[in-house]
Design a protein around this nucleic acid. Sequence first.
DNA 1: AACTATCCCGGTAATACTATCCCGGTATTA
DNA 2: TAATACCGGGATAGTATTACCGGGATAGTT
Lengths: 89, 89
Amino acid sequence: MVRLPLTPAEVERGQRLGALLRRARGERSMLATALAARVSPETLRKIESGRVATPAFATIAAIADVLGLSLDVVWAEINRAETAGQRAA
Amino acid sequence: MVRLPLTPAEVERGQRLGALLRRARGERSMLATALAARVSPETLRKIESGRVATPAFATIAAIADVLGLSLDVVWAEINRAETAGQRAA
DNA sequence: AACTATCCCGGTAATACTATCCCGGTATTA
DNA sequence: TAATACCGGGATAGTATTACCGGGATAGTT
């Protein structure tokens, strides 16, 4: 296989990422947030709903920027509760 | 258009990202770094050479982790010198 | 010199995925 | 009724990720 399909672990991490971003958005509207981050509202919605598991670095960085999130914190957060029995992926 | 091609600005940012990662790698071999980050050596090479402009968030995060880089710093660095004449992307 | 090993490079190719758009559907609020 | 906000599904253009091929450069060995 040339490109491996997403592993269940990656899918779950994507869902945690989406949930984290949605919580951080709080009361701000999806549309306003997406426009501020210069991404399409559809894209933000798919990421928040966890339907996009591995978004681009620039996409997440732009959204995190708008929401005032640290990328390091985001990365650490979504990797919690998964690094239990994970040595080699 | 459904998915817009990469803008020149995005391509240049990808090149700055690659250059930054390569500098941070220092004397460590590409192979060892890629294995430690659990990505393919081919992928790391393409990112470092700037041939992949918008890699996945998890890919960059894993590499930055191995190299001891802060994602926030990386993001700030590669956006320098680009935000001069950029209004809307 | 010749051989070997390691490292990096560029191109080609195949597959899986993202980013975006469009459509309709639901719920809330005025 | 209308407007706003969120939610799927479907479709499409373009990209990332990976593997394989050969090549060049360097360093160590025999």
